[in-house]
Simulated assay, not measured.
Amino acid sequence: MAQLLPWLLPVTFLALWQLSVSSGLITSSLVPSPWAVFQDGVDLWQAGTLPTNISISLYRATVGFVIGGGLGFLLGLLNGLSKRSRALLDTPLQMLRNIPHLSLIPVVIILLGIGETAKISLVAIGVLFPIYINTYHGIANSDSELLEMGRSYGLSKWQLFSKIIFPGALPTILMGVRYGLGIMWTTLIVAETMSSNSGIGYMATNAQEFMDMKTVLLCIVLYALLGKLSDLIAKGLESTFLAWRTKGVTIND
């Protein structure tokens, strides 16, 4: 029962939506029913359009996340461990972090054009800062008492990092990964509307021009499902790497 509970509200919403369209409360030409959207998805899948565009969007999202997330992690690690690096790099990074990354679209287009590099770069920029700030915060705020205890036992710098600093920072780092995965998809939605000819965002924009509401809603549902899949991956990483951590206490089950 507990495993089905998270899906209760989405399924209820879909049922009410289907019932409203079937009963005529909502005009089907304006808002198609969930079943019509599903049938549209089946048709596009059989035609090969849907799997092609999903795979392209997944490629852009994955590459952008790896580049931006990897760079954010390395910078957070470097600035968290080194006071000199922190003094040099943290201020400019914090200044850049406060610039809405989607406002950089005109700059990205001028510098990189409208190809794959531009779209992946936007995703990378969006993902970089949440992972950087969480990694930096987790590393820089290591438990000083545990570090002192480690030094008293004669642990080397690498042992202090691998046994105390990094494990202690891991929950915060994974929180940044989870947040970054959400930003990855919201950024990609916008990036794929930039003179694109492929991807889920392109499908939605193209369908909008032809007033094809079934495909527009299908793309929205796809983004929601991919976002949920990303969240499940993040939770899986937390379960794998934080198995040692005591589970949170709930007031009322």
Rank of each mutant, 00 (worst) to 15 (best):
L218P: 02
Q159A: 05
L128Y: 01
P92V: 01
S85N: 05
Q208A: 15
S162E: 03
T117P: 00
A87W: 05
V107Y: 05
P167C: 01
T250H: 12
E209T: 11
L14S: 00
I233N: 07
F65G: 02
V31Q: 01
G24Y: 11
V11L: 15
Q159D: 04
R178K: 14
S33N: 08
R84P: 05
N79R: 02
T215C: 00
M95G: 07
Y153C: 08
F210A: 07
S156I: 06
E192V: 14
S57K: 04
L8P: 04
T172V: 15
K214W: 04
L75F: 15
D40C: 07
H101G: 09
V37G: 04
I183T: 01
Y59I: 07
N197Y: 08
D40E: 13
S142V: 08
D253P: 03
S121Q: 01
V216E: 00
G154E: 08
I165M: 05
E238N: 10
G80Q: 08
S103F: 10
G138D: 09
T117W: 09
L174A: 04
L218T: 01
L147D: 01
A87Y: 06
G80T: 06
L222I: 10
F129C: 04
V127A: 06
R86W: 00
I26L: 15
G80F: 11
L75D: 12
F161C: 04
L217D: 01
